[in-house]
Simulated assay, not measured.
Amino acid sequence: MQIVKMLNLERQYASLRPEIDAAIGQVLARQNFILGDEVATLEQEIAMYCRTGYGVGVASGTDALLLSLKAAGVGPGDEVIVPAFTFVATADTVSLLGATPVFADIDPASYTMDVTTLEALVTPATKAIIAVHLYGQAADIFPIATLAKKYGLALLGDTAQALGATYAGEPVCSYGDFGCLSFFPSKNLGAYGDGGMIVTASAEVASSLKMLRAHGSRKKYRSETLGWNSRLDEIQAAILRVKLPYLDQWNRARREHAVRYSDALGQLDEVVLPIVAPRCSHVFHQYTIRVPERDRVQAALKELGVESAVHYPIPLHLQPMYRSLGYQQGSLPEAEKAAREVLSLPIYPDLEESEVNRVVRAVKQALLSTSARSRVALSGVA
């Protein structure tokens, strides 16, 4: 049985192989691998794409968050408000600087921060807010930015999954003091290894970030502050420069697949579909539905030859490493409910229509079989 993969990067490489191989070959011929022309040009191209003034290439999306927090002055004794439902890097970068993440619940429809709860989380120790644009869906950034301005807080956009998404017609990564990007291979714009970038409108901030990514040095062998070795390398930058002109086309293909899924699955009472929030565009890094008995449905899909994924099974406030912060089951109910129900289906630009149709059939069959098993179990109890 042929498997419908969650992600198939081989197809993308096959379509771009001559361009990719040529770009890598040029870097190898020049033998300049660290902070060369490819990185500098990509920084300009990404900044232009995001409509910001500056881009700073770093080693990963996690480092983009870490260096941005450091540049914002976050340190021991500070608090940073983050959503409870996202990848762990959003919070552990706060902790690595000696600060404390303060977890916000999510809006159950968009999976992004519930803006109505944020102001109550602000304390005299609050230093920053990280707004995560999850699954490719922009967070409701206007009220978040307004709150940040009111209290003098730094605003970071975790745009790892949402490059190309917009809010009120503007690139979502242009909002806030720092836009943090990831080029992890599975991302809408993915490298062939780790990589990341920070975009900002401030020349001063960009200069500070470049110092932080190079051991705290503006001049070689002269370190002004504690920093990191966090540099996007030339080969990854060359690959990304080949891919960037295709990004909008790929995002359109993702949206088209999402429409097909929603049209076919929208008639099922058991399935909660992803939404496109008001004033936003969605780039569908993930197409994530909600279903009852999620784990059983996922197991049934696997039996039918369809891969799926759970993003994310444990909300951050219930992660073992944050037990000392005192959150309990029920503290943030929407994040906890989402963690029990979400299921991401295959969605990538090279997904074929026949595969979309096969996924739809498998979801319907998985729901039927799961429902039947539940009825049998209930009758056995009775």
Results as ranks from 00 to 15, higher is better:
Gln2Thr: 12
Ile3Met: 10
Met6Phe: 15
Arg17Trp: 05
Arg17His: 14
Asp21Pro: 05
Ala22Ile: 05
Leu35Asp: 12
Gly36Thr: 11
Ala47Leu: 11
Tyr54Leu: 02
Val56Ser: 13
Ala71Asp: 10
Ala91His: 01
Thr93Gly: 00
Val94Glu: 00
Thr100Lys: 10
Asp105Gln: 00
Thr112Ala: 09
Thr116Asn: 07
Thr116Met: 12
Leu118Pro: 06
Leu121Lys: 10
Pro124Val: 10
Ala125Tyr: 03
Lys127Ala: 11
Val132Thr: 13
Leu134Gly: 00
Asp140Ala: 13
Asp140Tyr: 04
Ile141Phe: 01
Ala145His: 07
Tyr151Val: 01
Gly157Pro: 00
Asp158Ile: 09
Tyr175Ala: 12
Asp177Cys: 03
Phe183Ala: 05
Phe184Asp: 10
Ser186Met: 03
Ala191Glu: 07
Asp194Met: 14
Asp194Gly: 15
Gly196Thr: 08
Lys210Ser: 11
Lys220Glu: 10
Trp228Ile: 07
Leu232Ser: 00
Gln236Gly: 11
Ala237Trp: 03
Lys243Pro: 00
Tyr246Asn: 03
Gln249Ile: 08
His257Ala: 04
Val259Arg: 14
Asp263Phe: 01
Gly266Tyr: 13
Asp269Ala: 14
Val272Tyr: 10
Val276Leu: 06
His282Ser: 01
Val283Tyr: 02
Phe284Lys: 00
Ile289Trp: 04
Val291Ala: 05
Asp295Asn: 15
Ala300His: 05
Glu303Ala: 15
Val306Thr: 05
Val306Ala: 11
Ala309Met: 11
His311Gln: 14
Tyr312Lys: 01
Leu318Gln: 06
Leu318Cys: 09
Pro320Met: 13
Pro320Ser: 13
Met321Lys: 13
Arg323Lys: 15
Gly326Thr: 01
Gly330Trp: 11
Leu332His: 02
Ala338Trp: 06
Ile347Asn: 12
Leu351Glu: 07
Glu353Cys: 04
Asn357Met: 08
Val360Met: 09
Ser369Ile: 06
Ala372Gly: 12
Ala377Val: 08
